[in-house]
Design a protein around this nucleic acid. Sequence first.
DNA 1: TGTCTAATAATGTATAGACATAATATCGGA
DNA 2: TCCGATATTATGTCTATACATTATTAGACA
Lengths: 233, 233
Amino acid sequence: MKSGSLHERIRQDIETRIMSGIWEAGHRIPPEHELMAHYACSRMTVSKAISALADRGLIDRRKRAGSFVAAPTVHRATLNIPDTAAEIEGQGRFHTVEILNRTEREAEAADLDLLAMAEGGPVLSLTCIHRADGKAFALEERLINVVIVPAAREVDFARESPGRWLLGHVPWTDAKHRITAIAAMAEQAEWLDLPEGAPCLSVERWTWRTEGRITYVRQIYPGDYALTARFVA
Amino acid sequence: MKSGSLHERIRQDIETRIMSGIWEAGHRIPPEHELMAHYACSRMTVSKAISALADRGLIDRRKRAGSFVAAPTVHRATLNIPDTAAEIEGQGRFHTVEILNRTEREAEAADLDLLAMAEGGPVLSLTCIHRADGKAFALEERLINVVIVPAAREVDFARESPGRWLLGHVPWTDAKHRITAIAAMAEQAEWLDLPEGAPCLSVERWTWRTEGRITYVRQIYPGDYALTARFVA
DNA sequence: TGTCTAATAATGTATAGACATAATATCGGA
DNA sequence: TCCGATATTATGTCTATACATTATTAGACA
């Protein structure tokens, strides 16, 4: 239980009190000088423990007033969205990608929107299917902004999947995800080996850095695929 | 840009270098004493900045060896799953809940599993529909472990929705989420005002605290409902 | 009684130094 | 050349102290 350092133990201690409901929302936690006395340590150590809790949103700190247990209003969970190749290999299965379509073209109206391109320019459009031990796992539709990532032109994405290549070679500053349920359209259903209209999970991601959008990707998984997320950090 | 405190600025500074790709994965960031000199500050301040980055998983720190930019293998995003009532009201719409079914019974085999109950005991089963401005928004199927939360027996959940009541009255220590796509079954489709078989987003959540599982809930949204998540903390 | 002002209590930030810990580098000897 | 003891370096934790910031409380004054 007592994991190493003092500030860590203090944090754990307070966190347990909050989580177990001994200190409920709105309860004022003892001021730092009291905790100093209680744990017989310096203020910095106590402060470090409390700051960690504040960072995680478990408590609110107000000057002069004190620190209070925060009222939970949302479930906040961390979602790990691994690059598909890593995910499949992580399950001990054999991953392959097949490129179904690769086109380099001038950005069309729809592309301009997805990649937030003001002026237009060349884009690389990819459609590929990921397989785990030969079985369809996910369908990937991707647009890459070639203006920002010119190197993508030269890559053989059948050898290294687009997601993995981008992750390793192109840094991003921000990403937005959108998760919806869709009905598989005829062509999609065929590739995923599902009946037409079968429910599928669609995960879209827009990735950008300061200069602009890097890539847009939509991944379509059969409905029984589950994204899992956990509370706590 | 420069927001307030020095350690915050240093963190921002380093983060920008990492995110922009100036320092790529595996790059060693300057040791603390160099950063001290560069920012003309004490070691504690530098350390605080770097520790924050380490907490977020952006860098790895190794004694004697130094601190290195971590290799990104996954997109990590924070998913906010608000209690449905709060979500609807947050959109400025009018929220109502209708309880379609409320049963208190001895736990059945399926319940024991979902609530991880070893011995059995009473459970409260609820089915309700959330509406936004009168329009179907989400269908909620919930099990509450009455052994742990006896107070739930007395609550009128038509006045305060189950999610909100639990959030406000019952502290949890951990939660697990599972997101899948499903086809609406006849009864579900009817309540959600969708054709049978329409793709729907299913969000399941298991919530527990030290003594055991508190509640299991499955929320079913029409397919066009989107969960969104952002990178960064 | 009401209002403005000053004291006070709490957190927030930062310093400078000490010792602990872990991994690497170095050097002497077999 | 290899091995092992020792030195070195970078991070990890902690102390004691100082001053800044902010909201509340108490007191002075009209």
